[in-house]
């Protein structure tokens, strides 16, 4: 049986779908078979970020209604044959599906794939409850901002209450330059506040936008960019490898950066 993981955050716009797309692709590149499930009924976007939007014929709802087989609804990625997408219905809302049906689909997928990654919608209402129902573990995505961290803490609490106690943290959109001058919380700050194990750190990068525009996840690049490398490392950590966290401060080891840090050092 494959592992069923939910990618969640509470707050919208912190990078859940980007993370799901890149992790799925990165795990497939490591030779794993991966099924991505979009749980965002009515506001689906995972298909768009993967560049598979033109190939969707059936969604999870047709499978549940018995109008097609699960295999027919899965969109196989041509770039990474190990990767498949089960799309959400776009013309329905979150109540079109219930937690038991999500479990049924995820467990069928787990029988055929090494990983099932569920892209959770923002919020903590029915869409969230649907998405976490089948999950054995969670990947919590946040950014180093107060609103995102507060919402992440809330979903960690809600998942603990639902029996999912092994949540791991991805801190996304880090801007080392800002942390260096003490105007952004550091990864250590966020980790200390949320008190769950760290799975990865991803820098803020314009190339993420370009990749989204094209529907080509960053981890597909031949020469991995820094965020691409970050997602690749997260996939390796999921596989149990010990991989050092990226040193995002490295580009700031300039004379000015060193001077700024010297000023922050404790002298007493």
């Amino acid at each position: 049986m494959g592992r069923i993981l939910v990618v969640t955050s509470g707050k919208g716009g912190v990078g859940k779908t980007t993370t799901t797309a890149n992790l799925g692709m990165a795990l497939a590149r490591l030779g794993k078979t991966v099924a991505l499930m979009d749980a965002d009924f009515g506001l689906r976007n995972l298909d768009l970020l993967l560049g598979l939007e033109n190939r969707i014929v059936y969604t999870a709802l047709e499978v549940l209604a018995g109008e097609c087989r699960l295999e027919q609804a899965l969109v196989r990625d041509k770039r990474q044959p190990g990767l498949a997408l089960l799309a959400a219905a776009q013309n329905r809302n979150k109540d079109a599906i219930n937690p038991d049906q999500m479990k049924l689909l995820a467990e069928q997928l787990a029988g055929r794939f090494d990983y099932v990654l569920i892209d959770c919608p923002a919020g903590i209402e029915s869409g969230f409850r649907n998405a976490i129902a089948p999950a054995q573990a969670a990947i919590v995505v946040t950014t180093p901002e107060v609103a995102a961290v507060r919402d992440a803490d809330r979903v960690v609490g809600l998942m603990e209450a639902a029996g999912i106690r092994n949540s791991r943290l991805i801190v996304n959109r880090i801007r080392p330059g800002l942390s260096q001058v003490n105007d952004m919380m550091t990864v250590a700050d966020v980790r200390e506040i949320l008190a769950i194990p760290l799975l990865g750190v991803v820098p803020d990068d314009e190339r993420v936008i370009v990749a989204t525009n094209r529907g080509e996840p960053l981890v597909l690049d031949k020469n991995l960019s820094l965020p691409g490398m970050a997602f690749h490392n997260i996939a390796r950590r999921l596989e149990g490898e010990k991989v050092e966290f990226l040193d995002l401060d490295a580009p700031y080891n300039t004379l000015l950066g060193r001077l700024q840090r010297a000023l922050q050092r404790k002298i007493f």
Binding site: M184, D189, L263
Partner: peptide, 23 residues
């Protein structure tokens, strides 16, 4: 615990760093 930055901030007061506020 004192940092050079704290000294400079005291000599030339400006708005405090927002990272600690956030935390």
């Amino acid at each position: 615990m004192l940092r050079l930055m704290d000294l400079i901030n005291q000599l030339f007061p400006r708005s405090q760093n927002s990272r600690q506020d956030a935390k």
